[in-house]
Simulated scan of single mutants.
Amino acid sequence: MLRIAVQSKGRLYEDSMALLAEAGIKLSSGKRTLLVPSRNFPVEILFLRDDDIPDSVASGVADVGIVGLNELLEKAKKTREVKRLGFSKCRLSLAIPKDAVYKGLEWFSGKKIATSYPGILSAFLNEKGIKADIHVITGSVEIAPGIGLADAIFDIVSSGSTLISNQLREVEVVVDSEAVLVANENLTPEKNEILEELVFRIGAVQAADSKKYILMNVPKSQLEDVLAVLPGIKSPTVMPLANDEWCSVHTVLEEKYFWEIINKLKAAGAEGILVLDIEKMIL
């Protein structure tokens, strides 16, 4: 049985559980408790606070965990990064009052910086040769300059709206963060085998993300023109239709490309274009 530590609430919890569900993992309990086994896969989910996950994985309380890279770097616990998951993206940035004149990192010399991530900030400032006073705050970091607690902040930024509402502006991005799957460094062969299957399933889910299955009818006389337009993976599938003068073309496209080429496909002779979602894709 592989034990997976997952954040107990918040956006990372929602995205993590959605990913596990898409990977075919069904939980045994309708009501969430601290530890919930799966009904159909040899894993159990341990719900923890996000900042407890790195230590729980490093110490072996959990075998693997889904955690933000920001928390993983801050806790600096010895774990093995298995896979970046592509969701819960944010960044750790330095921000200053919006009216302050900023010409570079030297601005922070001698300044007081409020943060909930003193480890990451300290390492960054030391690397850059900047001496500043780090003031640790556990919540509402963004209000610190406005009430005179600090000259600047180092905090998570997603959309940037919180900074704007507090009269701050982002000036330096230090870490680009996202959810990562991490593992204990000393898993047994049996647990590693389960983890490999889990990673395989997650990979299939990720491969299908933002991709569409495209079907269209094409006159055989214009088939080469249509195929020349398609930027799909490998070679499109061409199938005969009841009308010998037509064929059906099937391919997979990145969704972002579809609207760019739809008029080109129509101009090339494609008709009856059908776009379908893809749940999983094995490459």
Score class of each variant (00 low, 15 high):
M1N: 00
M1V: 00
L2Q: 00
I4P: 00
I4V: 09
A5W: 03
V6D: 03
K9S: 14
R11C: 03
Y13D: 08
Y13R: 06
D15F: 15
A18G: 13
A21T: 14
A21E: 15
I25A: 01
S29D: 14
S29E: 15
K31Y: 07
K31T: 10
T33G: 11
T33A: 09
L34W: 06
L34K: 09
L35A: 05
V36L: 08
R39T: 15
F41H: 11
F41N: 11
V43N: 06
L48H: 12
D52C: 08
I53R: 07
D55N: 13
S56G: 12
V57G: 08
G60E: 06
G60R: 02
D63W: 00
G68L: 07
L69P: 01
N70V: 10
E74H: 03
K75H: 10
A76S: 13
A76P: 07
K77P: 00
K77S: 05
K77D: 03
K78C: 03
K78W: 02
T79N: 10
E81T: 15
E81C: 11
V82F: 04
C90P: 01
R91E: 08
L92N: 08
S93W: 04
I96L: 10
I96R: 04
K98F: 09
D99G: 10
V101T: 14
Y102N: 10
K103P: 03
W107Y: 14
G110I: 06
K112L: 14
K112Q: 15
I113S: 09
A114C: 05
T115P: 07
S116V: 09
Y117C: 09
P118E: 01
G119A: 07
S122E: 12
K128L: 02
I130L: 11
A132C: 12
H135D: 15
T138P: 05
E142T: 12
I143A: 12
G146F: 04
I147A: 02
A150S: 14
A152L: 07
I153C: 00
I153A: 00
D155L: 03
I156A: 04
S161E: 15
S161V: 15
T162L: 14
R169T: 15
V171F: 06
V174K: 01
V174T: 07
V175I: 14
V175S: 06
V175E: 12
D176E: 12
E178Q: 07
V180M: 05
V180R: 08
V182M: 09
L187N: 00
T188L: 01
K191C: 03
N192D: 11
I194A: 02
L195P: 02
L195F: 10
E197P: 05
E197C: 06
Q206I: 00
A207H: 04
A208S: 07
A208I: 01
I214Q: 02
N217T: 15
V218T: 14
Q222L: 13
E224G: 01
A228W: 10
P231D: 12
P231F: 09
P231W: 12
I233W: 09
P236G: 06
P236C: 08
A242K: 11
N243I: 03
D244I: 09
D244L: 12
E245S: 13
C247N: 08
C247T: 12
H250A: 15
T251F: 04
T251H: 01
T251I: 04
K256I: 03
W259Q: 08
E260Y: 01
N263L: 13
N263M: 12
K264I: 04
L265S: 07
L265T: 03
A267D: 12
A268Q: 01
G269L: 04
V275E: 05
V275R: 06
E279A: 07
K280G: 02
M281T: 02
